[in-house]
Deep mutational scan, measured.
Amino acid sequence: CHSECLGNCSQPDDPTKCVACRNFYLDGRCVETCPPPYYHFQDWRCVNFSFCQDLHHKCKNSRRQGCHQYVIHNNKCIPECPSGYTMNSSNLLCTPCLGPCPKVCHLLEGEKTIDSVTSAQELRGCTVINGSLIINIRGGNNLAAELEANLGLIEEISGYLKIRRSYALVSLSFFRKLRLIRGETLEIGNYSFYALDNQNLRQLWDWSKHNLTITQGKLFFHYNPKLCLSEIHKMEEVSGTKGRQERNDIALKTNGDQASCENELLKFSYIRTSFDKILLRWEPYWPPDFRDLLGFMLFYKEAPYQNVTEFDGQDACGSNSWTVVDIDPPLRSNDPKSQNHPGWLMRGLKPWTQYAIFVKTLVTFSDERRTYGAKSDIIYVQTDATNPSVPLDPISVSNSSSQIILKWKPPSDPNGNITHYLVFWERQAEDSELFELDYCLKGLKLPSRTWSPPFESEDSQKHNQSEYEDSAGECCSCPKTDSQILKELEESSFRKTFEDYLHNVVFVPRKT
């Protein structure tokens, strides 16, 4: 048989008469490798580009789960590009990614509803959504962080984005990388972005840091009482949809009607710091009717980097990364020049730590249904340095008659930039024990000054392991946590139920 035959053949030295091919099969003959313009397919066939392209389009058009959109890589027609490569849609070739590779997620039936953290986790790592997304989240724990972890990498949506009755959302900033909504599939009414009845939605994105392009379709905003109209108009300008909307697409009466839409800028007039305090004062603000001013709200939190936005980490279910302080308005003076500047002394802060701070007014709604208010920009203030805590785990070892090696770990709280350490030492008198000992005694162990690591005695271990207080009263049991108490109650309830079950099964009433 021919060298490319495997198993047997019907005619000697003829690659077209093989029972099976050793390498690849091409047009009725066995070959060692697939010549151009053919590609290896499933490690035994040679196919042309049209064959591989037909497989790709067949799966793409069917949208069946589990099928493969075949691509070409290293002269092979394979189910998908290997790690580190992405497909070129024009020629199906796998090309190296520039940075992290995109991950295209194809949605069944063309859309997916995100109504819980669990459903959001199914899209973790996706960068391109081939379909439409509907966000409908009523509640949950730590929602802002969970949504950002699972949806934060999405850069492109081919269909539309719909935010509907998501009472738990305060902001859409968890879509931190969303840059493009194509609108290839539109919501009824030709809408590519749809926001309806979101009672706590206050911000779409921080438009000073976020760009969003909507290729096709219109915007729809109705019944978002805490979303200011200025935020919607800003989205029109940034996304390129200005002029597409009709009169009733953006409701003037049901958007922002319960919001404090600040239209003035508060400026800080005085800032002073110490290692654990920050004193702030800002310019006074009074609405047209000074009785509408209820006070100020001061927001602050630790910020290692200057990239904080107002609604980071917030949701309507209680999660809030900001510390909020309510401040009463100052006494009002008739003389504008003698107006008191409101302020606040922030206490209990960490030394040498940068804080993000902003302040906003708290006002009631005027009778004319106009909203007044003022808010400052987010500023960054760093507390002063102070003395560091003591170095940890000092170790001293003498390696000769004239040297001592000293080692330690950095302090747990540096409280500033540590530039150097101060080492103090003092000579001590020799131990009298060394002169009084009889060095001729056998088995004498000389006193040693070398360091030995501390260890816990058996008594201390027994005390720590004991669940009861000892007789001397030195140790006591740790208080039980809520989960331990709940577990004990469940076990007790189970024992009672099981005992009742045994009584009912074992003891049967005697027939009379």
Rank of each mutant, 00 (worst) to 15 (best):
R369A: 04
A251P: 07
L169Y: 08
S166P: 02
I134G: 03
N399C: 15
L266G: 01
M235K: 00
E148P: 08
E109V: 08
P394M: 03
E146D: 03
D367V: 02
S321H: 10
F290D: 02
L123P: 01
D257W: 11
S119F: 05
G256W: 11
L151V: 05
V117A: 10
T323D: 14
I357A: 07
A251E: 15
A259I: 13
S208H: 08
I214F: 11
T118F: 12
F311C: 02
F299W: 14
N263G: 15
D312Y: 14
G313F: 13
F311V: 07
K226I: 08
C126S: 01
D197T: 09
F290I: 02
T254N: 06
S208Q: 13
V324Q: 13
R370K: 09
I271Q: 02
W207Q: 06
E231S: 14
K253S: 10
G131N: 03
L201S: 01
N136L: 15
F193M: 15
L153W: 14
S402Y: 12
F174V: 08
N130C: 02
V325T: 14
E122A: 14
W352F: 03
S166M: 02
E146Q: 11
S158Q: 06
E236C: 03
A149M: 10
K103Y: 04
N150A: 04
H106E: 15
D292T: 04
R291D: 12
Q199E: 14
A259Y: 03
W207R: 03
W344Y: 08
N248Q: 04
R347V: 13
D249T: 12
D377T: 10
D377A: 05
K267C: 14
L161C: 13
I357S: 02
Q339W: 08
W205A: 02
L143R: 03
M297Q: 03
F365A: 01
G295T: 02
V128H: 15
L147N: 01
S119A: 02
L204N: 03
P284K: 06
M235G: 14
D377M: 11
R369L: 08
S132H: 03
V390T: 15
L151A: 03
Y191L: 04
Q339M: 11
L406M: 02
Y223L: 14
T383I: 01
V390N: 08
Q314E: 02
E122T: 05
L186M: 08
T353N: 03
S321A: 13
Q258R: 08
G240Y: 06
T361S: 12
S116K: 04
S338I: 02
P391D: 02
K360Y: 04
L123C: 05
T371H: 12
L345Q: 13
G125P: 02
T353R: 05
N340E: 05
N255Y: 03
Q382A: 05
S173V: 10
D257V: 07
E148I: 12
N136S: 13
R272F: 07
E368N: 00
M346E: 02
R370N: 15
D328L: 11
V308A: 15
R347Q: 11
L180E: 15
Q203L: 14
C317T: 02
R244K: 13
E187K: 09
G131Q: 01
V324H: 06
A251S: 06
A316S: 12
Q403K: 12
N224A: 01
L362G: 12
D292F: 13
L252R: 07
N150T: 03
P351Q: 11
F299I: 13
D206H: 05
T273K: 14
T254R: 07
R176C: 04
Q354A: 06
I114M: 12
Q216R: 06
S173K: 09
Y167A: 11
E146T: 07
R179I: 11
S260L: 11
P288D: 14
H106W: 07
I378P: 02
S116L: 05
N399V: 07
S230K: 09
N190H: 15
W352R: 05
S274Q: 04
T361L: 12
S333T: 15
K209T: 11
N334T: 11
L161V: 10
A149V: 13
M235L: 14
I404G: 00
V238T: 08
S173P: 02
D335S: 08
F220T: 15
T254P: 08
D328G: 11
R164M: 13
R332S: 04
V308G: 01
T213E: 09
Q403A: 05
I214E: 00
S171K: 06
L219T: 05
L143Q: 13
E187F: 09
L151F: 06
P351M: 07
K409N: 13
E122I: 04
D289C: 14
V363S: 07
K242G: 12
D315I: 06
L252C: 13
A303I: 03
L392C: 13
G295Q: 08
G373R: 06
K234C: 13
L229I: 14
E231N: 04
G295I: 06
D377L: 03
D335C: 09
V128E: 01
I395A: 03
S321D: 04
Q339T: 07
N248F: 12
K234N: 08
L169G: 02
Y372A: 02
G348W: 14
N263F: 12
L133D: 00
W207L: 07
I188P: 06
I405M: 02
L392T: 07
Y160F: 08
P411V: 12
S396M: 09
L186Y: 07
D289K: 04
L294E: 05
E155V: 14
T364L: 02
L298K: 00
